[in-house]
Amino acid sequence: MRNILLLALLPLSDALAAPVLRAVSSVTSPLAPIFDKLARASAGNYDVPAVRAAIHRERQSAPVVIFGYELSPFCGRARQMLEDEGVHESQIKIVSLGAAPSLPGLIAEPAMVAELANMYGAGLPCCFVDGDSIGDFKQLAAAADDGSLKRRLDAAGALDP
């Protein structure tokens, strides 16, 4: 597992980045429930309506919003994938939930991570277009592949003219 994560952190050309991270995503996706449990344990008891309201505000705050970890190669690649689809970087807001899920104490917003999992069932990064959930990295990549992402971005007015 450590070698897979190290591979994911290596700088890769755009041509190689997407297929490599998609392959790694299929291996790391089964770990999402573990990260969700870690976030829930870190969150403890929290004000669910207040956290949901904060998520709602954030997901509505820009045409494209990505909730993710700063050290996640998937978050960076999700942003790049959106830019490759024609979204200008100024239209994308990254909501940092901390440095990384697997490093103790580095989840800055465990209640938000836990509630995103409860609300959308998606792992991180959790991506939104025009306030609507696209899903995690794997779902974002699938939407890019089938053309539905471009259509949603266009409908939201998020694409460069």
Rank of each mutant, 00 (worst) to 15 (best):
R2I: 10
R2M: 15
I4W: 10
I4H: 05
I4E: 10
L5W: 11
L5H: 09
L6T: 07
L7E: 06
A8I: 13
L9E: 14
L10N: 11
P11I: 06
L12M: 14
S13G: 10
S13I: 12
D14L: 03
A15W: 02
A17R: 09
A18G: 11
V20C: 11
R22D: 05
S25R: 13
S26P: 01
S26F: 14
V27D: 04
V27W: 11
T28D: 06
S29A: 13
P30D: 02
A32N: 15
I34V: 09
D36E: 12
D36C: 14
K37T: 15
L38E: 15
L38G: 07
A43K: 00
A43N: 02
G44K: 08
G44R: 00
N45D: 09
N45S: 06
A50R: 05
A54W: 12
H56V: 14
E58L: 06
R59A: 04
S61H: 00
S61K: 03
P63R: 04
P63K: 07
V64E: 00
V64G: 01
V64W: 02
V65G: 08
V65D: 08
I66K: 02
G68N: 05
Y69V: 05
L71K: 03
P73Q: 10
F74Y: 15
C75Q: 07
C75G: 15
A78E: 06
R79A: 14
M81I: 02
L82R: 05
E83Q: 06
D84N: 14
D84V: 03
E85N: 13
E85G: 09
G86E: 04
H88C: 09
S90E: 10
I92T: 11
I94E: 13
I94Y: 04
S96M: 03
L97Q: 09
A99N: 07
A100G: 04
A100H: 12
P101S: 04
S102L: 15
L103V: 13
G105M: 01
G105D: 00
I107K: 02
I107M: 04
A108H: 13
E109V: 04
P110T: 08
P110K: 02
A111F: 04
M112V: 14
V113L: 04
A114R: 00
E115M: 06
A117C: 10
Y120A: 08
G121H: 03
A122D: 07
A122F: 08
L124C: 14
P125C: 06
C126L: 01
D130G: 11
D132I: 15
I134F: 01
D136I: 06
D136C: 12
F137C: 03
K138H: 14
Q139M: 12
Q139F: 11
A141F: 15
A143G: 03
A143K: 13
D145Q: 10
D145L: 06
D145Y: 00
D146F: 05
D146M: 12
L149Q: 07
K150H: 09
R151H: 15
R152D: 00
D154T: 09
A156T: 08
A158H: 07
A158W: 03
A158S: 05
L159I: 02
